[in-house]
Nucleic acid binder design. Structure first.
Length: 358
DNA sequence: AAAGCGTGGCG
DNA sequence: TCGCCAAGCTT
């Protein structure tokens, strides 16, 4: 226990913080599709879990249409468990971190195998694929009313400011956890967690916190110090390399050749164009998958988490059949192939070139 | 336990 | 413009 949270406990303001935050939440909670609407039934574990997985490292705005689409197409965990994994991957295309989609299906199937009910506590949830410490705590608190200490980037930011925790992340994790535990209420822990999220997305933003709108400003040591935006302190990040690579548009009779990437690793399990072997650690070889009269068709820039890629698009019209597994996909329907954004950009480029030719 | 893993928005 | 950042998990 660090000095600041000890002080809070000693002064008894920990419960005051929770009360003020919950009062603020009752007044200002965002209306989100995965939350209970006034007068409507509670969302239920399936929708809570689905939303939490989609929201991992992903903004509310990006998640919203995907959540609507998934819940309309697969209304229950049993329906999702019965779905074809490839179709789920395609439906996830564009949302990123595709291991989440694979784990989503695996998790749904485990839940379906236990009769369709999620474990109702943190420890049980934590054992399911794709559910880590954060998601287990969030689902336990929000869907099952458990007292759980829910810690995400919002909570880390709010708590590090509230208590002016100067140790850099990730080292400060344990201190942040103790402080978050100290202010988490026994009742309404789920609302408390969501209130922290709303606080982090509203008043207590990363860049320019609006302390005048914050219900906790009177309790905030970071603000009292004069510069709350300096929290949380973070360790410096490594520079990311820029890699060069190619991908190959092979067209025959109005269809383009698509492959499926290996199940693990970059864009794992997703449909893709053949490429020349580029990856985070190395440029591509430049070698096309088959010989022919290849034409350069421009390049796309794309940033990944740990490297940037300059991807050159090469095109070929042929009557040959590429070696290996793949499928001919109608060019006119390429928008429905479920391509991850990198290759969707390449497809857009290819289509724009065709327009110019015509 | 540090590194791999997407994407889009924002100041 | 571009670096930073987001309701993290896995190995």
């Amino acid at each position: 226990m660090d000095a600041s949270s000890t002080t809070v406990l000693a002064t008894g303001s920990a419960t005051g913080i929770a009360r003020r935050l919950l009062d603020w939440y009752d007044e200002h909670a965002r209306d989100l599709p995965w939350r209970a609407r006034p007068g409507a039934a509670a969302p239920g574990p399936y929708r809570v879990w689905l939303s939490e997985v989609m929201l991992q490292q992903t903004t509310v705005q990006a998640v919203r249409p995907y959540f609507e689409h998934f819940t309309a197409r697969w209304p229950t965990v049993e329906a999702l468990a019965a779905a074809d994994e490839g179709e789920v991957m395609a439906a996830w295309a564009g949302l990123g971190y595709y291991a989440r989609a694979r784990n989503l299906v695996a998790c749904a199937r485990e839940v379906a195998a236990r009769g369709g009910s999620f474990p109702d506590n943190e420890d049980g949830l934590r054992k399911l694929p794709g559910i880590g410490a954060y998601t287990a705590a969030a689902v336990a608190a929000i869907a099952f009313g458990r007292r759980a200490v829910v810690i995400d980037a919002n909570v880390e930011r709010v708590v590090s400011r509230l208590f002016a925790i100067s140790d850099p992340l990730p080292g400060a994790r344990s201190a942040i956890r103790e402080a978050a535990d100290a202010i988490t209420p026994d009742e309404r822990a789920g609302d408390f967690a969501q209130a922290m999220m709303d606080l982090g997305s509203g008043p207590c933003t990363a860049r320019d916190p609006a302390c005048l709108l914050c219900p906790l400003s009177q309790h905030c040591a970071g603000r009292a110090e004069g510069d709350p935006a300096r929290f949380p302190v973070k360790a410096p990040k490594r520079a990311k390399p820029v890699r060069q690579g190619r991908c190959f548009w092979i067209e025959r009779d109005g269809a383009v050749w698509l492959v499926r990437r290996p199940g693990k690793g970059m864009l794992g399990g997703m449909r893709a164009f053949p490429d020349d072997g580029w990856h985070a650690g190395e440029d591509g070889s430049g070698e096309p998958p088959l010989p022919g009269d290849w034409q350069p068709a421009g390049r796309v820039q794309h940033g990944f988490t740990h490297f940037a890629l300059e991807l050159a698009l090469m095109t070929l019209h042929t009557r040959a059949q590429p070696e290996g597994d793949g499928e001919w996909w109608p060019v006119a329907d390429i928008g429905n192939a479920g391509l991850p954004t990198l290759f969707a950009k390449a497809a857009r480029l290819a289509l724009s070139q065709r327009e110019e030719m015509a």
